[in-house]
Structure formats: C-alpha cells, structure tokens
C-alpha cells in the first residue's frame, strides 16, 4: 500500500498502526527513530500521527508524549505541521492514520471525553461582535455546562488570572491584541481543563505581554496542567518548556528537554580564536584541519563551526600554539535552542 493511498478511514477504523504502512522506507526509518511512549503519567500521547492533504504530508509519523504538569514546546518553521497536529489533538481534525490520546482517550474515537479535558487556544482569536469580555467568557462557561455559582466563580477566577478583570465590561472589539490573547487564554481556561493547547499564543505581542504570558503558562504548569505550546520565539520557549519537539515538513526531528537536545548537539560548536600574528595564514592552516567548517576571518578573529569534543578543541589550540601563532583568546559558544533549531532543520517548507 503506498503512503498516498492512506485515507482518514485508516484512522477511523481504529487508529492502530498495522504492518502494511511499514513497507515504505521512510516510514520504517521514522518508526525506528520515533519512540512511542506509553506511560501512566503521560497526559498527551501522539501515536504515529499522520495527516495528508492530497500529496502533501502535513504530519508524517509524529510520535511523542508529554508528562502531566509539563510544558511541551512545539517548534518548527511555518508550514511544518504544528498547527495541523495541534488541531488533531484538539479534535478539530482527524488524522489520516495513527491516533492521539489525551488522558488515555482517543481523539478519534472518544472526542467528547477529550474535549472536556482540553483547553484550546488557536492562532485566530475567534471572538464575537457586540459582546463584552464578561459576556464572552460567560457564554463559553455556559457552553461547557457550568451553571450558577460555579460559573460565576470560574468567571471571576479567569478574569483575575488573566488580568482582564478591569475590562470585563469593555466590548471585545476595542481590545488590543495582547488583551484579546489574554481573553482567549481565559476562554480556554474557563472549564478548568487539565490539558492546554496553545497555538502561537505569543505571536504579535509586545515584550511585557510576552513576559506576562510566560508567567501565566508557568503558573498553569505549576498547578498541574499539561501545556502544549507552539511558538516562533525560541528563547522564550527554552525558558518555559520542560521538553521541546522540533518538527519540519511534518516530521519530528528531535524531542526531549532543552538540555538534552543541546547536549546531543554539543559536539557541534562555534569557536572564536584571536590570533595576534599572521591571522590569514592561521586561517588557511585551520581550514585544512578535520572538523573545521564555515571559517570566517574578521580582523584578528577567526570564527568557525567545529565538530568535536572539548579535548579536540584543546588540541586545536595546542596545535596553533605549536605552529607559532600567538593565540590571545579562545571562546566557545554553546548552542542556544535557536542554534539547535537552525542546525536540526533545513529551512524546508512544503
């Protein structure tokens, strides 16, 4: 069976992967590299998730899990498949193949149980005209079946938590983007879900609003909520996420904690060496050494990508000194999440 022949029906028939799809080489590879987690404390679980739109593989064999109370950062360029997989998890779309579980409930077979546990904040606001903030939240509280005192208490708490209490009576139309984001976060929180899915919540926010959002998300995780968040602002994700997943062209390229991923990529570092005498000659000789790539000479500074361990780095310095170059300064730049992202992905879009 070719990959393109898979349809939603495969997922609808049960969602469990069969042996047939593995005849495809690419699928075989990804099946080996992607772990399928099954654990009691996993709150979100993607099981070999696929979603095809015609020939386009929006999500291509993605498997990962998120532990209860953790914040998982979903990183990827535009068109990588983040939103598609988040929409599947939010029961708004069906996978072509595979399944996703929230608290052990399948998004394909038991969407209503998933929905009760889920707060979804899409990248679009989804607001109404001619209603104010309180009425908006009140409506969604009613839509989730909250009544009477419970609803009033939840409303009050959400307005307080998201900092929208002061504008409860204001019409949504007049709110700033940051305030609308807060309101939408409040809407996603109104029924007290255990899992939050936030699609690009920080997009277009000013620095202060982003800091506030980060604080709120961390607070939610501290209160035991599992958060799946996608963002382009990687420095922020690195600070708030317990684990991250890097996705490109529908494929999950790396997953784990930020430290784990950085450690995996640690052999690939950027070195800067200041040579006081004959920098160009030193650069020429360095270029010939194994593990040295993308060398740039900037005055007395030589910058290059170096593939090797710390010992190899020390050997290079010793070798330069032995060759008679005056090494005045050596600095090694540890890779940030952004560097890791750039290294892992190829900037491909589909």
């Amino acid at each position: 069976m070719s990959q393109e022949k898979f349809s939603k029906s495969d997922a609808l028939m049960g969602g469990e992967p069969s042996a047939e799809p593995l005849q495809d080489d690419s699928l075989l590879r990804s099946a080996v590299t992607n772990r399928v987690h099954v654990a009691e404390d996993d709150c979100i679980e993607m099981r070999r998730l696929h979603r095809f739109f015609g020939e386009t593989r929006a999500v291509d064999d993605v498997s990962f899990s998120v532990k209860r109370g953790h914040v998982f950062g979903y990183i990827g360029p535009n068109g990588a498949g983040k939103t598609t997989s988040m929409r599947i998890l939010a029961t708004l779309d069906l996978p072509s193949y595979g399944d996703a579980l929230v608290d052990g409930f399948s998004v394909v077979n038991d969407p209503e149980y998933v929905r009760r546990r889920l707060g979804f904040m899409p990248d679009a606001f989804g607001t109404y005209r001619d209603v104010n903030c309180q009425e908006y939240l009140d409506f969604f509280a009613r839509a989730y079946g909250l009544v009477g005192r419970e609803r009033n208490a939840r409303l009050k708490w959400v307005l307080h938590f998201t900092g929208t209490k002061g504008m409860a009576e204001k019409p949504i139309r007049g709110l700033s983007k940051g305030m609308k984001q807060r309101l939408c976060l409040g809407r996603a929180l109104i029924h007290d879900p255990t899992v939050m899915i936030l699609d690009e919540p920080a997009a277009g926010l000013d620095p202060r609003a982003r800091i506030d959002l980060r604080r709120m998300i961390r607070e939610l995780a501290d209160r035991g909520k599992t958060v799946l968040i996608s963002s382009h602002i990687l420095t922020e994700l690195a600070e708030m996420c317990d684990t991250v997943g890097i996705i490109e062209q529908g494929r999950l390229l790396a997953t784990g904690s930020v430290e784990e991923i950085q450690h995996e990529q640690a052999t690939h570092r950027e070195l800067t060496i200041r040579i006081l005498n004959d920098t160009n000659q030193a650069a020429q000789e360095l270029q010939a050494r194994p593990g040295v790539q993308q060398l740039i000479v900037d005055g007395q500074l030589i910058r290059f990508e170096f593939e090797g361990e710390v010992e190899d780095q020390a050997a290079i310095v010793a070798w330069l000194v032995s060759r008679g170059f005056d090494v005045a300064e050596v600095s090694s730049h540890k890779k940030s999440l952004e560097d890791v992202f750039l290294h892992v992905t190829e900037g491909l879009v589909q």
Binding site: T91, L92, L118, F120, A124, F125, G126, T127, Y144, R187
Partner: peptide, 13 residues
C-alpha cells in the same frame, strides 16, 4: 468564518 464554530464544537454543546 470567524472560527468560533470550531471553539463551540470542542465545547460540550
């Protein structure tokens, strides 16, 4: 059009 139906469809309505 506004995407609010999706928000409603994941509620208990």
């Amino acid at each position: 059009d506004d995407g609010t139906l999706e928000l409603l469809s994941i509620s208990t309505l």
